[in-house]
Amino acid sequence: MIYFQVLANGLILGGLYACIAVGFSLVWGVLNVINILHGTFVVLGAYVAWFAYAYFGIHPFVSVVIAGAILYVIGHAIQAGLINRVIAAPVLITLTLTFGLDLMLNNAMLVAFTADYRQVNLANPLPAIIIGPVFLPGDRVAAMVLAFLLTGLLWRTLRDSKIGRAIVAVRMDREAAALMGVPVARINAITFGIGALMAGAAGALLSIVYPISPINAPIFLGKAFIVCVIGGLGSVPGAMVGGIALGVVEAFGAFWFGPEHALTISFGLLLLLLFVRPGGILGKKGYE
């Protein structure tokens, strides 16, 4: 049954999409900022993994931690130093600001790393998993499992830790949270840092699947957008559902209509969803 294979491909892709989108969704939901930098953050995480593997032989699954840490620091600094100054301004202003920052960061990466495609070719890939007619590359499955673990970890952090509850409080009502003693500016910076961390970690996982280049950044940003709209904004389960849905739709779309139409299909789906259900499948108010 070829359909099982297509479905499996879609699920693997979907796990990675969920991991890309969850940080974007968090920043959008909590800060009401569309972070255009997100795609570039993902690519930067992938570069960290590439350099760690090429120069130090560190496996990308290990450098997920390194990429996440580096990106967290960058994200925290950007929010604390720049975006916090205009956080209360209209939508257009914060969107434009992150767009300008993205032009700078992406251009810097283009100059530093060139536009050449690079890929992590593992010396000892994991063996493939074969279940009946379905063939699963071992490394991709491991990447997907790690992506789900990371996303789950973020979900538990938001639910159970003090910082996580503070983030949810700011999401629900900024003024009330401030009155209850939540340091809103600091929480903003931490939230943006976590968003960048998830992007960097997702990038490190993607480095074994996708070719790496700064010019790929808009593709990841686009995926994050679509996943958020499909799943509903500002919830971890929403990003999970949206990511898997997009992965499966793309896999079947590519199978039936040819891979060159996969992008058109996902954008068409996005426009349709925006029209009929802008809140997303699991959309509701409040971040949980």
Partner: peptide
């Protein structure tokens, strides 16, 4: 261009 945009917004 990014630098102008950021300076402009801020």
């Amino acid at each position: 261009l990014g630098v102008i945009i950021v300076a402009l917004v801020l």
